[in-house]
Design a protein around this nucleic acid. Structure first.
Lengths: 202, 202, 202, 202
DNA sequence: AATGAATGAGGATTCATTCAT
DNA sequence: AATGAATGAATCCTCATTCAT
């Protein structure tokens, strides 16, 4: 019985977050009203405040949870083999993860583009996650070509991640007319080629 | 010479739009309140409604005007020389135009990412402009390599524009740590190389 | 030429009043906004204020003009013959006039029912017209039966006019399902019978 | 006993409705502003929206409740005796109920006269109630004279109700100068006489 | 005779949040 | 662990009206 009670709390929290991702990734920070989330999850607005301090915390949690979901979908564990192979595998698994769990990046980019006086903490969370990704990708890029200097690595990492963002947006806008996986394969090749060129030139 | 104190409609309209671009490209559709725009342009909220039917029309006009501004900054006229040169020139002038007039793309991408039941017309306007750009870039890509089949052209155009979006976002997020022009040069080379590879393979 | 100019003024005034009757008799005093009237007549709101001091005066004029229209439709001139005949003729011509020109009574009754702190002058105009009608009908009633005392006349006049109002409303609500002329004939007979009964009893 | 200071929903709802009848039956649909109701009931405007979806629902509820109040005041139970007696008793009790609880009909008629594109649901509610009354009165009329054909019954019912409406309006306009009960007695007699005449003629 | 533009007040409604239970 | 009710501030937008031209 007691366990059931506990479980209900968890369940409500989950229902709220489920509703909130949906709303937030559809309409952004301002467009996400507590009333809308409440309507979508079936719980009264006041119950949302029992689980979350305020709207800011709710949306920050949404970003965190949807990132976790996305990360699980990426499953990077088996990145082995030559660098070129690793880059391509990474690209494809990122693409597939974005198809499976697009909420994280959709909402994250929306937050990243907005610039209000008092930054929502969800934005901070997103930027932090993005920084981690930057460091991670930098490691991979360096392993492609040891001769790359740091400024070239920076450039390549920024390019690699930025283009990934852009491709995701293209998919969001274009829907079925856009083949995300093929685009990411193209992207992987482009980054590898660029690394070669920079390794020689730079 | 004598500026009328009252009833200079054109000027007021301009002041409203100036305020609105600023607000909208900072905070997106929902975050743009008429009260904020009113405060920023000095005219009462009700006057905004004399010039624009509603918020939707206001923001759609903002997108239109800021696109025109951006387009002027691009100055494509002098695209001559071999294809490779043209691609690079285009990339650099796009990059510079985005540095000079970033409002159009910042707001446009924010709108594009949102997916509310009833699409704001500003979003429609942005997507239309984007389509035109797509067609335009397709022409350039075809001129690089006549052997590219249409699906390869589509892929490359989508990639070219998507990565440009992403780079812009990277600059927005990263600020001075990001060298947008250098990234666009890298991007131009990447697209050219990819065109070569696809022209042979595809 | 000059005459043309003059005529334009009259024409605008007429267009405004035409629009205003329509709106006012559809939506009452509060529901009639200058913007709506302006949209319906094609002239800007400020032009309405050139012709009428304010909304109050506009609607008062509407009532006056639509009363005149109605009165013209009644054409009472030929009320001759025995009292019973006159009453019936009056009833039928009132009924027909209400079918032809219903705006006056519709708007008038709407105004009469409302009771706001500061009475619109249109309401006053309506009540005055109504008083005149009362006096007029009293004359007719007295001519039916000289033995009626004044309190009986009052009662009958009030009843005669009140029922007429009610029948008009029934027609407004019921539309084609209601035969207004037949109802007014029934009403005329009822009033005559009541006069007989009161003349004996009272 | 202990009245809760907060969160007595039923009581608040009642206070809102009390305020709303007063305002609405004085000023009609458009004239009833939420701010006015709020001021009159002491609750903030936003609280009104906790209890009612929107103004439309509020006023529809007002009509429903004020009809119930009026119906209670009519107390039809004791309609016995010969038809003539029943008609007279009904007339007098309707008159008295209208004196006690005039809000329902005053507001209802105001709504009935307005004809805006999108009918307020309060109007629909009123017309439905009115239809029920029509059926009820038809039963009584038929019981007066079995020989009346249906078209005559229709005519008489429409006349009976319409004149009642008109008499109510006369009382509203005329105030103390109008003796509503006496008018309704006159009306009852008129309807009975008319039924006799139609029974023979029709 | 007319009108484009402006304006402060007020319209309905939704907002994020709180609090007593 | 949850919720019904409340609330002040803010939302978009319309109001009647004015005034310089």
């Amino acid at each position: 019985m007691a366990r059931q009670r506990r479980a209900d709390g968890e369940e409500s929290r989950r229902k709220i977050l489920d509703a909130a991702v949906e709303v937030a990734s559809e309409r952004g920070y301002d467009g996400t009203s507590i009333a809308l989330v409440s309507a979508k999850c079936g719980l009264p607005a006041s119950s949302i405040y029992w689980h979350f301090k305020d709207k800011d915390e709710l949306i920050a949690t949404v970003i965190e949870r949807s990132f976790a979901t996305w990360l699980e979908a990426v499953r990077l564990a088996d990145l082995t083999g030559p660098a070129a192979e690793r880059v391509k595998t990474l690209a494809v698994s990122v693409a597939n993860a974005l198809l499976e769990a697009p909420d994280f990046l959709r909402l994250g980019l929306m937050l990243a583009l907005e610039r209000r006086p008092q930054d929502p903490s969800a934005r901070t969370v997103f930027l932090r996650v993005r920084d981690t990704a930057h460091t991670y990708v930098a490691g991979i890029i360096r392993s492609i070509d040891g001769k790359l200097d740091e400024s070239a690595v920076e450039l390549l990492v920024t390019y690699a991640i930025a283009a990934a963002d852009g491709l995701f947006i293209a998919k969001e806008i274009g829907g079925d007319r856009v083949d995300l996986v093929r685009l990411f394969e193209l992207h992987a090749r482009a980054v590898l080629t660029a690394a070669d060129q920079l390794g020689v030139t730079g």
